[in-house]
Write a protein that binds this DNA or RNA. Sequence first.
DNA 1: TTCAGAAATGAAAGCGTTGTCAATATTTAT
DNA 2: ATAAATATTGACAACGCTTTCATTTCTGAA
Lengths: 358, 358
Amino acid sequence: MDKGGTAIKPVTVYDIAREANVSVATVSRVINNTAPVKQSTRERVMELIVKHQFQPNALARSLYKKETGMIGVILPDITNPFFPALLAGLDQEARSKGYTFFLCDTVSTNGDSAEQYVRESQYLSILMEKQVDGIVMIGGRINLAKPSKESICEVVEASKRVPLLLINGNLTGGGITRVYADELEGAELATQHLIELGHEHIAFVGGYKHMSNTIQRIKGYLKAMERSGLQTRKEWIMDGGFSVASGTAFMNRLLEHSERPTAIFCANDLVAIGVMKAAHKAGIRVPEELSLVGFDDIPYASNSIPELTTVSLKCYDVGRYAAEQLHHMITKNKFSRSIKVRPELIVRESTARPPSRM
Amino acid sequence: MDKGGTAIKPVTVYDIAREANVSVATVSRVINNTAPVKQSTRERVMELIVKHQFQPNALARSLYKKETGMIGVILPDITNPFFPALLAGLDQEARSKGYTFFLCDTVSTNGDSAEQYVRESQYLSILMEKQVDGIVMIGGRINLAKPSKESICEVVEASKRVPLLLINGNLTGGGITRVYADELEGAELATQHLIELGHEHIAFVGGYKHMSNTIQRIKGYLKAMERSGLQTRKEWIMDGGFSVASGTAFMNRLLEHSERPTAIFCANDLVAIGVMKAAHKAGIRVPEELSLVGFDDIPYASNSIPELTTVSLKCYDVGRYAAEQLHHMITKNKFSRSIKVRPELIVRESTARPPSRM
DNA sequence: TTCAGAAATGAAAGCGTTGTCAATATTTAT
DNA sequence: ATAAATATTGACAACGCTTTCATTTCTGAA
């Protein structure tokens, strides 16, 4: 247990107390301003504290106080540009309330989602053992269209022990508080935009049909199409990925047929960018010959050429609300109500009227 | 301190011990396999542990053992696509050794760097109070060309109390262990590549001259230019940002003059993308009329149209080495030697021979 | 049966804080 | 000067765990 050599022996309240000729209680009082201390002794203690650069041991404090000021965040992949905005919102709000984050990225290097799920479980345990004040879960298993019985059980069980909040995802049972974006409405918005521009042949590509977010987006797309009495085609609804690479693959598959849609609604921005690349390579101009709308409004969406029309899920707001709700759950220990946040269409350059028929 | 209502009263070793009719010592022994326990009692205790889903309190354990298994990471902005790869490397290596991360993002919402620096200090304190086993600092103040006396002092002071490792940055004094990419060599590589393609008129744009990374990159650029006896011009060396927006601004400024470079080496990929956008708007084709090389090899570099030639700083490796070194410092308590990792040129589509003169 | 040695267990100290409660020092009022 | 306040302070238990050291229980050999 001893690490030998170079480390300075940490100074404790006892050291300070001894040297200042007071009791540890008094030292504690000046540190925390928790009770009046005579001016002269306060100064004496303070001096020693700065002299020794004394830093109270948060473990001991938390052990006694039963609060750590830490919030654990479990997310599937920090690399996904979708998350930083969410985290920024969470952070902003949580920091102002004195919390600090414990980030747990469950991404598996080999992309194996089974491995990812076990890491979610592991982190859930670790966070509880570390006595975090609350836990936020984003994506991963809770994002499955059909979460397994065990997943639900595990999360519900955890939520009984520690304030736990779900962001986005699909774990609606068990009375767990959620803060989530209305993906269905977002998809409707996107599709409606295309329709209003005059498009009638609209494809949907991207995502995974076993994930709830994809299902919601497809539902929204279908709803908008139906409302306008527009036909949809099986071959024009494709899933199989959220990446740029999958986007180019989708587009290339679309290109194999003689008939092509005049607009594509992509499951997310990355896919849209992939589609844009493939279109570019095939000599198809966006938006003149092909309109594209993405989803998520990742920072890069405004960097592409042309800039991408997309729908913002208001991640920053989602994060803020989540932190607010969680704080409420921690301090009042109530199950808060779930919050749905409404998305917003961001029109940029990748959409236009369809090419006129000849 | 009581949070009332819904929370389950946590079960402790005492509860298990009482119900199993053994002492807490025995319970501890079966949990940690730290001494032989009779098979029958081990089973009895185990049963109760799973029955109550007992989870030992990591605070109490760490308090006694003086180790938390946590590594604190202080970085300036998780949003910067440069970091995820670094973190992935760190994470991969550190997790295998049983550590878990404590991520501290010091970004300030209003972009005020002064605020950022105080947050670095705050986090440094918080991490030490939370008794992390080690700390990794990336970017921020340590990245300044001239770090302030106080910064250096503070970091050196911290490094005396806890194993501390710097990634990249410029805090070379004080005998602090660093793991860093050789930015100078990277810049040389990039410039050399352009020169070998036949370019003679090469500009450097981006970065901030008060930051050490920018200075290194400019140095490497100048070194390569000089070696080949190529002229450089004051107006073709511009700094002022690392963002896409600043990139387009640089390009537009370049466009104001009648003479233009045939190639631009950008301080990072984001700037390169901004330049590319501005070039596209001005009707200048990349790479036919203008070659572009970026720096960092962020994931997006291969998503742009055309794909960006850039230099990889081997972030993943840097992260892995850092975790290795830090682990060594934690367990052996030695100051490890600093490690320099060599960058690599990634040739993609944004560079070509210069347009032939007419 | 008896005893040495091994195996299994328990009691209690400590890790570094905070908070309670009682004791002491200092004022203020009489 | 003295009693009755009030303002400061200290001793100690508690937080939940691990580990040391001593004790008890068991094993097999004499």
